[in-house]
Amino acid sequence: MIQGSIVALVTPMDDSGAVDFKRLQALVQFHIGQGTDALVAVGTTGESATLDEQEHCAVIKAVVDYADGKIPVIAGTGANSTTEAVNLTRRAKEAGADACLIVTPYYNKPTQEGLFLHHKAINDAVDIPQILYNVPGRTGCDMLPETVGRIAQLKNIVGVKEATGDLSRYQKIRDLAGPDFAIYSGDDASSREFCLLGGNGSITVTGNVAPKLIHEMLMAAMAGDAATALAIDTKLMALHKNLFIQSNPIPVKWAVAEMGLIGKGIRLPLTWLTEDCFDAVRAAMRLAEVI
C-alpha cells in the first residue's frame, strides 16, 4: 500500500505552454530529496485537462523514468470516456507506473451504476492497481461511499482519493471497503484530521510547495500523534487555504515558480495568478518557511 504524502505534481511548462521536461526532471529529484512518499503524474494539478493524449503519456513516462524506482509514481488516467480511460490506463502500465488514479467521469454525470460499470470496465481491461478519485466540486458527480464499497470488491481497485472534505465519509468507506483498502484525503485543509481518523495519507496540492512539512505532518497524524501533527499543520494552514485562492493549479504553479523550481508556463483556459493574489500566497509561503 502506498501511504503518506503523495504529491499531485504540477506539470512545468515554458512561456509558450510547452512541457518543460528538464524542469520536470529537477522537480522529481527535488521531491525525492524532500521526503515525498509518492508522486501523481498528470492529475488535476498536473493540468490533465489541457494536455493531449501524447503529452499526457509522455509526462507519465518521464516521471516514472526520473523517479527511477526511488518513490512510487501514480499516473492520472481518468477521463469522462470509459474507452479513453482504459487506453490511458493501459499506456500508464506500459510506461511502468506503480498505480493509476482514475477520476470520477466529469461533465456527463453518470449514475452510481454507471460509475460502477465504468470502473469495472477499466478494472477488467488493465491489470494494474487502481485508485478511485472522487472530487464532485470539479466533476459534477459524487461517488457515494456505498458505490466506493461496491467497486472496492474488484481485484485491481486498491484505494480511493476522497476529496469532498467530509470527514464523516472516512468511516463509512472503511466499513464498506475493508481494512486493506487505502483511503486518501484529497482535501489539504482536512488531511490532518482525516489521517488521525485512520486515513492512509493525502494526495496533496500543498505538498508541491512544502513537501517536507507535509510529509512530517502526515506521518505524525498517521501515527496518532495529534499534538505534533497540529504543530506542523499550523504552519501549513494558510497554504491549504491560499493555494486555492484561484482555481487549482493556478496558485500552486505560481508558488512553485516563486521558489525557482519551474517557469511561468500555464495553459489556457487557465491563466497565471493575478497580481492581487500575490501577497496572500507569498505570506502563506513565509509561514511555511519555504521562502
Score class of each variant (00 low, 15 high):
Asp15Lys: 15
Thr11Asp: 06
Val59Gly: 04
Met285Trp: 09
Val59Cys: 02
Thr228Glu: 14
Ala280Trp: 01
Ile122Leu: 11
Val19Gly: 06
Gly4Lys: 03
Gln171Ala: 12
Lys235Leu: 08
Val158Leu: 06
Asp52Glu: 11
Val59Arg: 04
Ser168Ala: 11
Glu146Phe: 00
Glu84Ile: 12
Lys212Gln: 13
Ser247Arg: 04
Gly78Cys: 14
Ile131Arg: 06
Pro145Val: 09
Glu146Asn: 04
Pro145Thr: 05
Lys120Asp: 02
Val160Arg: 10
Cys195His: 04
Ile102Asn: 13
Met13Arg: 09
Thr274Trp: 00
Pro269Ser: 09
Gly69Asn: 03
Val290Asn: 04
Lys120Thr: 06
Gly159Arg: 13
Thr274Tyr: 00
Asp14Thr: 12
Gly149His: 08
Gln34Ile: 00
Val126Met: 10
Ile291Lys: 06
Pro129Trp: 14
Gly159Leu: 13
Leu270Gln: 03
Leu213Thr: 05
Thr89Ser: 15
Glu113Ile: 07
Tyr66Thr: 03
Leu9Trp: 01
Leu236Thr: 04
Ala26Tyr: 01
Leu287Arg: 12
Tyr133Leu: 12
Thr206Ala: 15
Gly199Pro: 05
Leu230Pro: 00
Leu27His: 05
Leu213Gly: 02
Gly260Ser: 11
Phe116Arg: 05
Leu239Phe: 09
Pro136Cys: 08
Gly201Ile: 13
Arg91Gln: 15
